[in-house]
């Protein structure tokens, strides 16, 4: 003999089904709003052909210098400092082998994002060289997900600050600059931070707006969901089960509950 559903459960099955349908429709609406969002990536920034010294960069090994080998490492760093610029590097390479790049003069290209933190003699910049910076632009404008940001802290002397007009934000890709400077694994002037102190800089591309198009499907879903929420509140208020500030509740809660 089949177990019979409890009366209270049976009487509320329709209500439960209706509730689930509403939840599913709302979820589908949200997914659709995201799926139908405008996809307008910015133009990829061409930053020139591979540098002659690229092979030298790739040959860098990631061995950490222990204190016993500090003297040898210092000599090596001095030789490196006297050498010509290493060529173009990416922040990921520097962060993966900070010791290998310490005191090395490099060429670095990236988008200025956030704020220009002006101090005496220059400013601190966050310069990213990830895909959002050099390829597709701010993520809100397109659907090319490529992970987290990556960049370097760059100290830009005052004479080059005019190059940076508009750092990147949600609605624009910021100025893209190319700097030549020295990597400091533990910069004493920044309390031990990993920095790149620029000795020269030039503007590669001006800032450009991104994501101007409005996500209309999302606006439609927002309107429908707002109406649905108001309908629920009105229903609750009408039944005297929900008090709304500024409105009198029509029927009080029954004692039975």
């Amino acid at each position: 003999m089949k177990p019979r559903p409890r009366p209270w459960l049976r009487s509320h099955l329709v209500e439960l089904a209706l509730f689930l349908v509403v939840v599913l429709v709302a979820s589908a609406g949200i997914v659709w709003a995201r799926w139908a969002a405008p996809d307008e990536p910015l133009e990829r920034i061409a930053i020139g052909a591979a540098q002659p010294d690229d092979a030298r960069i790739r040959a860098i090994t990631c061995e950490r210098t222990l204190p016993d080998a500090v003297d040898a490492a210092e000599e090596e760093a001095e030789e490196e400092a006297a050498a010509p610029p290493l060529g173009r590097v990416q922040s990921s390479e520097v962060l993966a082998c900070p010791d290998a790049f310490d005191q090395v003069v490099v060429d670095y290209v990236g988008e200025v994002v956030g704020d220009v933190l002006r101090r005496d003699g220059g400013a601190w910049l966050l310069v990213n060289d990830d895909a959002y910076a050099l390829e597709s632009g701010p993520l809100a404008a397109h659907d090319a997900h490529d992970g987290a940001n990556q960049g370097l802290a760059v100290w830009l002397p005052t004479e080059f600050l005019d190059l940076v007009d508009e750092p990147g934000n949600a609605s624009r890709r910021g100025d893209v600059i190319e700097v030549v400077g020295r990597i400091h694994r533990a910069d004493p002037l920044d309390g031990g931070g990993l920095t790149l102190r620029a000795s020269s800089a030039e503007l590669v591309r001006d800032a450009e707006p991104a994501g101007a198009a409005i996500n209309r499907p999302q606006a439609l879903v927002a309107v429908l969901m707002t109406l649905a929420a108001f309908a629920v509140v009105a229903w609750g208020h009408r039944n005297g089960r929900l008090s709304v500030p500024g409105l009198r509740t029509r029927r009080r809660l029954s004692k039975r509950r």
């Binding site: 999302q218 969901m225 649905a228 929420a229 609750g236 929900l242």
Partner: peptide, 16 residues
């Protein structure tokens, strides 16, 4: 607005 409507709507429904 989507987030607020969904959260407030569900909350108000459960509450009421």
């Amino acid at each position: 607005v989507c987030g607020i409507s969904a959260t407030a709507g569900l909350g108000a429904f459960l509450h009421a």
